[in-house]
Design a protein around this nucleic acid. Structure first.
Lengths: 220, 220
DNA sequence: ACACAATTTGAACAACTGGTAGAAAGATAC
DNA sequence: GTATCTTTCTACCAGTTGTTCAAATTGTGT
């Protein structure tokens, strides 16, 4: 950022190197984790390599021994999210459980990833325009595949008569995914509910709905 | 961005001024709209004033006749979203309808804003770290107030016995809002459903749930 | 002690950033 | 045509950006 603006405060920058002692202990993983945090907080474009290096108590130049360039860091964040997400969901989809059971498990899985990898998740759904080349296309494809699993589980339930046909499966899947992905905007592990509890509520909400069971009246 | 990177392509920059003829016809509104688009696509930090000016077929200097500075543009985007959102929702909450009816209407309203102001909406939920000073705090407060309306409608329904008490109202509200806000990530007005239809599906999904009505079996 | 590889530094770089000043152009009314 | 006001352009500033690289430092095995 720049110029001679007196009230710059804005994006929490310039926190002065906080790592306490001596030399930095750099590693690709450490860089990617710190970067995910900063990218989530300030955005990819507004985060400089100096910011990342500072946060690690190192210098900009040192980063280049571990990573190819800035975009390379982003790529690693995307891979991190995908490797944590893909296989478990594929296995749930492959399993023999009933559709509603599958959906509950898929929600629990997705919520758990969103909760535990919250900054990386935020970056994942935000910064794809900063990926280029074939990798960008690959990510789009894998994301679509991932989302299609949810759609398929719902369709499966509709065919089996477990789920109503009144709602388009694709729209339902997008709605559900939005519900879960939004977690990274507000979830804090210090909050009143664990991510398992939240997942259970989401599942109940999407499957059973908010409406009170028929025939039951208010108690006052 | 910078250096001497041969494969820069990334974030769709450098589109060379596209506006065809003669002088630009600038206005605050035009600037804000174009900026919302670019901020949504590439992020606030990665969008330069030159980018905005180019897209308008004007030069950076001209922008400063209409706006105070870059952050000022962001502020206008936030105000745009809030003025379109707040009052209609407040009126729905104030109305005498039953809670489930209120909720449906609130969803329809929110979805409609998310669909029609999609880029601004994306910016709204993404770039708050780039707001500074008292305005930043004001926005946080107004956003919270807005979200609390949803929570209150759900609580109201729980008290009236229309909604089940099994799900925490705050979690339900966050889930619902995530569902709607996520629209800006995938909705295209050219798609198979209007935003009204999507809102109706979302309402049915959240209130009635996906589960098929009891006693009804699959038709095959 | 020595050699050799793995890391980190710190400076240099060219391009780009947000922001400013003043000249120039366009429009409008007389 | 002149005078006035609005709008846009050009040129520039000082600071920041991502990236490279030779030199210095550290770590490890012998």
């Amino acid at each position: 950022m720049a110029g001679n603006n007196p009230e710059h405060a804005a994006a929490t920058k310039k926190t002065s190197r906080s790592k306490t002692t001596g030399r930095a202990r750099l590693s690709q993983k450490a860089i990617v984790n710190v970067a995910a945090d900063l990218f989530a907080r300030n955005g990819f474009g507004a985060t400089s390599l100096d910011d990342i290096a500072d946060q690690l108590g190192a210098t900009k130049g040192a980063l280049y021994y571990h990573i190819k360039n800035k975009e390379d860091i982003l790529r690693h964040i995307y891979l991190m999210v995908l490797t944590a997400s893909e296989e478990p969901l594929a296995e749930i989809a492959r399993s023999q459980a009933a559709a509603d059971e599958k959906l509950s498990r898929a929600i629990a899985h997705h919520v758990s990833v969103a909760a535990s990898r919250s900054p990386a998740m935020m970056v994942f759904y935000r910064e794809h325009p900063h990926l280029s080349g074939p990798f960008a296309r690959e990510i789009v494809e894998r994301k679509k595949t991932y989302e299609r699993y949810f759609e398929q589980i719902i369709e499966e339930g509709q065919v089996a008569g477990v789920f109503s046909r009144a709602i388009d499966a694709k729209i339902a899947a997008f709605g559900l995914l939005g519900m879960c992905n939004w977690l990274s905007q507000w979830y804090q592990s210090s909050g009143p509910y664990t991510h398992q509890q939240i997942a259970a509520m989401f599942a109940q909400m999407v499957e059973g709905g908010l409406n009170a069971p028929a025939g039951v009246e208010a108690t006052r």
